[in-house]
Design a protein around this nucleic acid. Structure first.
Lengths: 115, 115
DNA sequence: CCATTAGTTCCGAATTTCCGAACTATGGGA
DNA sequence: TCCCATAGTTCGGAAATTCGGAACTAATGG
């Protein structure tokens, strides 16, 4: 079990953030962590939409979010707690995260209106 | 030569935009098109930074930007003119493009300060 | 009609992503 | 203490993407 990698906020790169959030599943996971008081166990997220995401894929998604600097993960006993780093990222790249999350929210609303 | 695909603005997906701009080369191309009065020939962009981008890769980059809804390309004689669709995209996803471009601009300044 | 310029398409190699199976780490009993 | 259950990570091979050189197409100008 290698130690978890958390880049310092000044090492966080925009392309890593965009790449991480370019996947709707990861964006949904990040939104969930950010909204749910910044704490969430991995498996509390495993049923996003109707798609079942296998554990290994989920673990990889968390790793991408972590190494992009979007979340911070720490073990608490047997489970992992994930905190959103949105405040830090927002300070470094003002408006970025909110614009991205609004874009997803907006697009979701539109497509639901066209059955 | 298949016809160029330009999605309607209401069909533009956030994940496509993030994916397109998650590549620094594409983000630079898009910034260049947007800033240069919204018109640019493909090869006017071919030497970004010090990296030489082969024609085929450049063509693929333009295709990704086009199909993400970020640019509009039309033939004018032998050359292709690319217009930024930033106004349309900005209307649909407010703040998204400016936040992304600012993030890249900010990150570039910071890393240049650490040799 | 041929040459040139600008860009696209094709295709094989390299890279990345996906996911099941095996593994590791931690805590809680018996 | 040993074993089990839970939570997540790592491995490895298949599938999907991306990269880039070579060949191709389209328009223009001798």
């Amino acid at each position: 079990m290698r130690p978890l990698i958390h880049p310092a906020i000044e090492d966080v790169r925009p392309e890593a953030i965009l790449h991480a959030l370019a996947d709707p599943a990861r964006a949904a996971i990040f939104a969930s962590i950010t909204q749910a008081g910044c704490v969430q166990a991995c498996s509390a997220v495993s049923s996003l939409g109707e798609r079942v995401i296998p554990k290994s894929s989920l673990s990889a998604h968390f790793k991408v979010l972590r190494e992009a600097g979007l979340i911070r993960s720490e073990r608490h006993g047997v489970e992992m707690r994930n905190h959103s780093r949105c405040a830090e990222v927002e300070a470094r790249f003002p408006g970025l995260l909110s614009a991205i999350m609004n874009a997803y929210a907006g697009a979701k609303g539109c497509e639901a209106a066209a059955p």
